[in-house]
């Protein structure tokens, strides 16, 4: 009988482990990306002029441990999850030709999305007024063209109305670290390796059903 109980416990253990995240999820406050009001931008340089591509589509979600109180935030590490994706095809410049060249270099057909996953979030200091932004230092993983790199960037979070959060931030990366050869149009221009990625991302609290 004893043996059987141990056996049973052994069989149940994975189930218990599987249900743990589900139980934990109940203690998370989730915000989902809104379909409007966001903007991701990549700024770069070239031998002729600077260039910019933009996307108005940023999908994903962020969730905070329910212990993180937006009204009385404590500086320090914040227990948070965040995954954000941008469809590469929605990054646009003013030139179709430029976009075509970019999609090819970024291997859009094989890797149609740019993905960011948060790994660490630290609140630097509590906002001094209700309207002031929360300033975080973040660490995360950025996946572009099939290559994932670690990135660090300061992120500001502002409360918008009752249930929305707006995140803004920017970081600089080198195209070559993602295995992307800076595009060159023969005889016309060549682009610089350094690009600046910046974003404004709007998310709303998930309605409880």
């Amino acid at each position: 009988m004893k043996t059987n109980l141990f056996l049973l416990a052994g069989k149940l253990a994975p189930l218990v482990l599987l249900t743990l995240p589900l139980c934990a999820a109940e203690n998370w406050v989730r915000y989902d990306a809104l379909p409007a009001g966001s903007k991701a931008k990549v700024d770069g340089t070239s031998t002729i002029h600077d260039w910019t591509v933009e996307s108005r589509l940023i999908a994903g979600h962020v969730e905070f441990d329910s212990g993180f109180n937006l009204d009385q935030p404590a500086p320090g590490k914040v227990n948070a999850h965040c995954v954000v994706t941008i469809p590469v095809r929605q990054l646009k410049s003013d030139s179709t030709k430029m976009d075509t060249v970019m999609y090819e270099h970024i291997k859009q057909k094989d890797y149609p999305r740019i993905e960011y996953r948060l790994t660490e979030m630290t609140l630097k200091e509590a906002p001094k007024t209700p309207d002031a932004p929360f300033l975080f230092d973040t660490k995360g993983e950025l996946a572009v063209a099939g290559v994932t790199n670690k990135v660090q960037m300061p992120v500001a979070m502002t409360r918008v109305g009752k249930d929305k959060l707006k995140f803004t931030g920017s970081t600089s990366v080198k195209m070559t670290t993602f295995g992307i050869q800076p595009p060159t149009l023969v005889g016309i221009l060549s682009t610089g390796d350094d690009v600046k990625i910046s974003f404004e991302w709007l998310a709303a609290k998930k309605e409880e059903k």
């Binding site: 990306a33 379909p35 108005r56 994706t85 469809p87």
Partner: peptide
């Protein structure tokens, strides 16, 4: 076509107002 597809993969494709705005 790609905007409709990407929007539908990211957000509720039945959210007509948001899709039209996009």
């Amino acid at each position: 076509g790609s905007a409709v597809e990407d929007f539908g993969a990211s957000f509720d494709p039945n959210d007509k107002a948001a899709l039209e705005k996009y």
